[in-house]
Each structure stands twice: as C-alpha cells, then as structure tokens.
Simulated scan of single mutants.
Amino acid sequence: MIVDLPKFVAAEEPYWTRLERILAQRQQDPWAPLTLEAAKELDYLYRRAGADLARVASFSAEPEMRRRLEQLVARAYAEIHGPRREVAARLRPWRWLSATLPRTLRRHARALWLTVAVTLAGAAFGGIAVAVDPEAKEALMPFSHLRGDPADRVAEEERAMSDRLSGHKATFAGELMTHNTQVALFALALGIAWGAGTIVLLFYNGVILGAVVVDYLLACQGVFLAGWLLPHGVIEIPAILVGATGGFVLARAAIGRDDGRPLAVRLRAVADDVATLAAGAALLLVWAGVVESYLSQYHEPAIPYALKIAFGLVEGALLLTYFGWAGRGRAAEAAP
C-alpha cells in the first residue's frame, strides 16, 4: 500500500522516464545493437515499473498514472519478450535509407577513416611508383587500355564520333555493377580474416587509382581524367570504402580484444550493421554503374568536360551531405 503518493511518484518518476526514453530509442532504431549492460538496465526498469503498477493498481484516485504504467509495462514486455521488430524495420526502405544507413556509417567512423587511410597510402605508393618509373604501370595497371600513352588514348576517345555502347549500355552497366559489387563485398568478407585481406584489397585499389591519376597528370590530361572519373568515381570509390568499413567492423568482432564474449555472440552483435553497410555499398554501386555507362564513357565533343566535372562535384557534395547529416534529427530525438 502506498502511504505517501507524492513521495512515491517523485522517487519513481526518473525510472519511468528513463524506461520511456529507452523504448523510444529502440522504436526509432530497432537495428541498434543492445549491449549486455543496456539489456540488464531495460530488464531492471521493466521489472521495477511492473512492481510500481502492482502497487498503484488498487489506487483508484490516480487512473492516469495507472494507465501510463500499464502502457509502459506493456511496451517494455513487447520489447523484451515479443517478436523481434527488426523484420518490420527492414520492410521500411525509406527509414533505412534516410536514417539507418548514414547513422550506421557514422557509428563506425573510425573504421571508415581507416579505409580512407589505407586507400590513400596505396594511392601514394602507386603515384610515386609511376612518377619515378613510368614503366612501372605495366606491372601496376590491371587493364590494357591504361598501359598506353594517356595522350594517345585521349585523342582516340575524342575522335570517336560513334556511340560505342549503342544498344549495349544496359549490359555494360550491369557488368560494372556486378564487378564493383563483388569487389566491395569481397573487401567486406575478407574482414573475417582479422581485416588483413581487407587492408590488402584496399591498398591494391589505391595503388591502381594513384598510378592512373599520376600517369594522366604527367601527360597533362587532367581535364580529361576529371571528366572521365568524377561522374562515377565520386560514388564508386566511397561505395567500396563503405563495404570495406563493414569488413573492419567484422574484423573487430572477430578479434574481440578485451571482450570476454564468445565469437558467435560478437558476430551476431555486428551482423545488422555489417548487412546495412553491405546493402548500402551495393546500392551506391548500382548508381555508379548507370552513370559510368551512360555518362562517363562519353567525352568531348559529345559531352563537355565541364558539364561532366560539375555533375561529379554535385554528386560528391550530395553524398557527403547525406552521410554526414541524414538521420541526425531522429538520433537526437531518440537520445537517452
């Protein structure tokens, strides 16, 4: 029996408010991993609210308080004992795209910056190698059309007046999407080997990128290079980095430093984030494939370089804005 109702409410109100905030946070982002400490807190607050409900159930003078506790306990019970709500969340593509994907990437910002650092290191190595020894590109370039003189290739591309991909644009775009998605997912999957494979693949991709950029710049073909690479590259390269970020998330779970949980538990804890990053990388690469097939492969006089460069810069700015700010409002509203 409650002797002093105001004192009881004053003592218990912080616990009810805390439980409401946790439940609101879970509703906003059902994919967010729940740590052991957070799960224990949720269970404790649920049991405490249940005990409080039992104490006020016969207190007819406060029907609003009783209804509030009944709803709170019911929501907590559904969160703990009910079916997982992630299934419903996965069927809400707009929420996933507008909030879950960018927030997941920001949550693993350190892993993302590691992918950037490894790629830049590879680019520096490839660029220096070509600058010091131009013949090195024979060993570094994986495609034959990149091993020749950049000036000759530019002249050939600008002389070609016919539509080389006429009737084959969709096929070419599909091949690009398939190949690049395989690279991104391969970089992610290699994370299970403690991230070593992911690092090697990122470094190698960086070497190719750096070698190509320096080779074309030394040949004074920077404008052609920007018009060729920017439209699809500002999406394609970040997409591979997003996939590789998932690889490093997987690697951290596999290593489990200072983590007493079993490997299977650690992998389950990051499974949703890894799946989100993989899907995000694949989605970006679909767009990059379309742009490369329908825009990047066409040069002056067919399409002005300035237009292609401007298109790429706008794409890059939009992508940075999306990953940097999308979903922040919802995160703030759900913050405990």
Rank of each mutant, 00 (worst) to 15 (best):
V3I: 11
P6I: 04
A10N: 11
I22H: 15
A24T: 09
A24P: 04
R26C: 09
Q27K: 15
E37K: 13
L45V: 05
L45Q: 01
Y46W: 15
D52Q: 09
E64V: 12
M65W: 15
V73M: 08
I80P: 12
I80L: 15
A88Y: 08
L91Y: 14
T104W: 07
L105E: 03
R106W: 00
R107A: 10
W113Y: 12
V116H: 06
F125A: 06
G126T: 01
I128Y: 14
P134C: 00
R159S: 01
G167I: 05
K169L: 10
A170R: 12
N180C: 04
A189R: 07
L202A: 03
N205L: 11
V207M: 14
V212R: 07
V214G: 08
D215W: 12
Y216S: 02
L218T: 01
L218S: 03
G227T: 04
L230Q: 03
L230M: 12
P231R: 02
I237S: 04
P238F: 09
V242H: 11
A254S: 04
G260Q: 04
R268G: 02
V270E: 07
L284C: 09
V286N: 08
I303S: 02
P304V: 01
V314W: 06
A326Y: 14
G327M: 08
R330P: 07
